[in-house]
Design a protein around this nucleic acid. Structure first.
Lengths: 341, 341
DNA sequence: GATAGGCTCTGCATCGTTGAAATGCCGGAA
DNA sequence: TTCCGGCATTTCAACGATGCAGAGCCTATC
């Protein structure tokens, strides 16, 4: 049985198509008599509005795209969850797309015009997108970026204060009496701005404490996976001056990878080496030892991004593209402070 | 600037709308002369087909919905990734929705007709959906279920052989000489069919080895999160006969939670208690100790589900709803076999 | 030289819905 | 009794694309 159309309901109820539409949408006043007839017909035929037709008419799809590098990286999965939930509150549906870190796919996804790609707007967590790429975007649909502002981009972006977050993490290690604090995850090149800010925070914490930064303890990694953390830590363990006594990792996966290498080398966490992560993924809570980490306020990030996107969509906001800040906090767990046995 | 329409391109190129459409879609032969003019116009105006209009005309949206309980549970995140990737191969886009384990939301999402919900089809990983719910579905769009067949459901479903997978895991523990093997995650009620099959496999392995199952070592859990595993393990550690010497957990989160409780109690993994998980999530590889686990072939699951859904969509398949089986394998790691130091 | 046949190319109708404007109907005021 | 205002309801024309049928035109054939 083909799906019932407005037309079929109208025939059955003996009214015009428009009246059925009015009943369904509650737009215009309708007499009780006709309303009842229409509602009965709707129920009998199991009528459901055809969303695609409605979309065409409205020029809106009710879909927003969330583009992340990898959906199965816990941080992005948790963020995706928050975005999906928040968007639903506003009646929007989220299409999750992943770029697998391929610049081409990132480009492709943001370049497409909204009407072409059927999304009303895009929330993008860029990995390898350059300022030039963004400037070339000619799409008319709104775009909100997650993460650092890409220079003088003309788009809104939602982020946390990475400098102070990293400083917070590093200061925590300093306060614990650690003296040789390593950092894993620096990315000293164009698309690694977030990492660079964390390195800056790491340095600031040292300056504040009157310490010098030992550059040889800052290990860059191209990606932020377990294996990168494990490998970087191997390097640190083999440091000419001996292993550091603390490591600040730029995300939790790096940190868990780092802990793995440390334990494998027969050292203890946190007694020999304290480890701090970043992102506060769920797995860190139940890891042994549980992970001290910087927790960005993911629900806030999702909410800021969705709300700003929808504001742009409805044209409510004429403000210039802005930086929107979400909060963060340090969550201290066993990887820096051993629990009382 | 409003987005260019077929109409605008036609005007500019001095041809009919239909010809532009033909050029864009490559449907009909077009002379080189006109093709060039059209292509030039397309480029100048930055024309992009309006997907919503196309969808309306075709009666297809190119969207499939993937409905999972929780997007940030690693298994579902990894599965979602595979589904998104596979669907893209076929030109489909995936909308990820999560039910948060609420039966009402599950119902709502599958009940809606495809044309209403704008999805061409739905892939559902049900948590709390009963046979009755499914029978009441009146939607016309195809639905593929992930997980156990719900009785004589009229839908395709993709699963793995949970009985033999669980038997494999348990046999592994038996082969290691473990004698008191616990199980965490049984769900002895209607919607817990997958868990029940795993329990069955666990029992079979015992039977094969001529062992008796100690029912007091089978701990049910309502959910499959870290905390459930940790709590269930507390119970086991306090068992009147003393702790078991092995635990088979029905997913990796339970297993990691279990390991946490074991280590917190001052016992060792695997020396004192060996632990096996299920799902082979990425975090298990880098956990310390790394996690022995049953690895379902997620790419195969995704592929089977997507391909079957699309086959139903195109009407290629008249076959009765079937069970489609994906493979699995046991991955042995440190949580059952200590690595050579 | 007329006709058939093959190519391009165009116009019209349509997908299912909603915006805008027109219609019909009623009661109340003049 | 007539006219007007207000309300319920309907008609018409889109939204932007594609399926179909047929109109031109050009070449090949008898």
């Amino acid at each position: 049985m083909a799906a019932a159309r407005l037309r079929d309901v109208a025939d059955r109820a003996g009214v015009s198509i428009r009246t059925v539409s009015n009943v369904v949408n509650g737009y215009a006043p309708v007499s009780d008599q006709k309303r009842e007839r229409v509602e009965a017909a709707v129920a009998e035929l199991g009528y459901r509005p055809n969303v695609m037709a409605r979309n065409l008419k409205h020029g809106r799809s009710g879909l927003i795209a969330l583009v992340v590098p990898e959906l199965d990286v816990p941080y992005f999965a948790e963020l995706a969850r928050a975005v999906v939930t928040t968007a639903r509150e506003f009646g929007y549906t989220v299409v999750v797309d992943q770029t697998d870190g391929e610049p081409d796919r990132e480009r492709e996804l943001i370049m497409r015009d909204g009407s072409a790609a059927m999304f009303d707007g895009v929330i993008l967590s860029p990995l390898a997108l350059s300022q030039t790429d963004l400037a070339q975007r000619d799409a008319t649909s709104p775009l909100v970026l997650l993460g650092e502002r890409i220079a003088d981009s003309e788009y809104d972006h939602v982020t946390i204060d990475n400098i102070s977050a990293a400083r917070l993490a590093t200061s925590h290690l300093i306060a614990l009496g650690r003296t040789r604090i390593a950092a894993i995850g620096d990315q000293p090149y164009e698309t690694g701005e977030t990492a660079q800010l964390r390195t800056r925070g790491y340095e600031l914490a040292h300056e504040e404490a009157g310490r010098l930064v030992d550059r040889s303890l800052v290990i860059p990694t191209h990606r932020f996976h377990f294996s990168d953390g494990a490998e970087a830590t191997e390097l640190l363990l083999a440091h000419p001056d001996g292993p550091p006594d603390a490591i600040f990792c730029y995300n939790d996966l790096l940190a868990i990878g780092a802990i793995r290498s440390i334990l494998a080398a027969g050292l203890r966490v946190p007694e020999d080496i304290a480890v701090v992560g970043f992102d506060n993924i769920e797995a860190g809570r139940y890891h042994t030892p549980s992970l001290t980490t910087v927790s960005p306020d993911k629900p806030a990030i999702a909410r800021l991004a969705v709300e700003r996107l929808l504001a742009r969509l409805s044209g409510d906001t004429d403000e210039a593209p802005a930086e929107l800040w979400a909060g963060h906090e340090l969550i201290v767990r066993e990887s820096t402070v051993a629990r009382q046995a």
